[in-house]
Amino acid sequence: MTMYAQFREQVAAAPAGGPLVIALSTLGGDPEVARLMGDEVRLLHEYQGREALFLGKVAVYSAGATFMSAFPADRRFLTRGTRIMVHERILAKQIDVNGPLRTCVASLKASLHEIEHSIRIEEEGFRDLVAGTRIDFEELRRRAPENWYIEAEEARDLGLVLDVI
C-alpha cells in the first residue's frame, strides 16, 4: 500500500489547473493496487472534472497495464521504445485437504470461488484495456497466457494508445 499512498500524495500535490499527466514505468506489481490507483483516476474525473492522461515510459508491464486500463484509449500515450506486457493474473497457492469431510469440501469450494472471481476481475480489466481499440477482447484473452508484449508503435496502430511521443 506504500505505492498507493505515494500515488495519492503526488496527485494531491499536483498543480490544480490543466490536465493531470500521470507517467508510469513498471515491471509489474500488485494488480489490486493498480486497480485502486485507477479508481482514483476515475473519481478525479467523475467528481472533480479533472482530465487525466496516461504516459507510459519504457516498460508498462502487468499491473502497469491494469492501471493503464483505467484511462480511455484516447488519453493514453507511450514514449518511443516503450513496451506493454499483458498477461493473466497469477495465483500461487497450496491447498491442504485435511480434516472433516465437509470442511474439506468447503475449503476446496472457497479456493475455486477465489479463482473464478479473480478471472472475472481479470476479464473486466481486459475489457477496459481494449475498449475503444482495434483489439478484440477474445484476442487479448487468447494471447494473455503467453505474456503478450506490445511495442509502442504496435500499441498505437492497434488503438491501444492515442500516440507515441
Results as ranks from 00 to 15, higher is better:
Glu116Gln: 05
Asp30Met: 04
Thr103Lys: 09
Asp39Thr: 06
Met3Asp: 12
Glu114His: 07
Trp148Asn: 04
Val41Trp: 00
Pro15Gly: 13
Glu116Ala: 07
Ala144Gln: 08
Val161Trp: 08
Gly28Thr: 09
Asp163Val: 02
Thr66Ser: 05
Arg50Asp: 11
Thr82Glu: 05
Asp39Glu: 14
Thr2Ser: 12
Leu91Trp: 04
Arg50Val: 07
Arg120Ser: 14
Gly38Thr: 05
Gly56Tyr: 00
Ala34Val: 09
Leu20Phe: 06
Asn147Tyr: 14
Glu124Cys: 04
Ala152Ser: 14
Pro100Trp: 07
Gln94Tyr: 13
Val130Arg: 01
Gly49Pro: 00
Leu108Gln: 06
Gln48Val: 06
Ala106Ser: 13
Ala92Leu: 05
Glu46Thr: 12
Glu88Cys: 14
Arg156Trp: 08
Gly159Ser: 08
Thr66Gly: 07
Leu112Glu: 14
Ile95His: 10
Glu146Leu: 10
Gly81Pro: 10
Thr133Ala: 03
Gly18Ala: 10
Val41Pro: 00
His113Val: 09
Pro19Gln: 13
Ala16Cys: 06
Asp136Trp: 04
Asp128Ser: 11
Phe67Met: 12
Gln48Ile: 03
Thr103Gly: 13
Gly125Pro: 00
Ala23Cys: 10
Thr133Lys: 01
Asn147Asp: 15
Arg76Ile: 00
Arg75Lys: 15
Ser62Thr: 07
Ala23Trp: 08
Ala144Leu: 11
Ile90Cys: 11
Glu154Ile: 04
Leu101Tyr: 07
Val164Phe: 06
Gly81Ser: 08
Ala13Glu: 14
Glu40Pro: 03
Val161Ala: 01
Glu116His: 04
Leu112Gln: 12
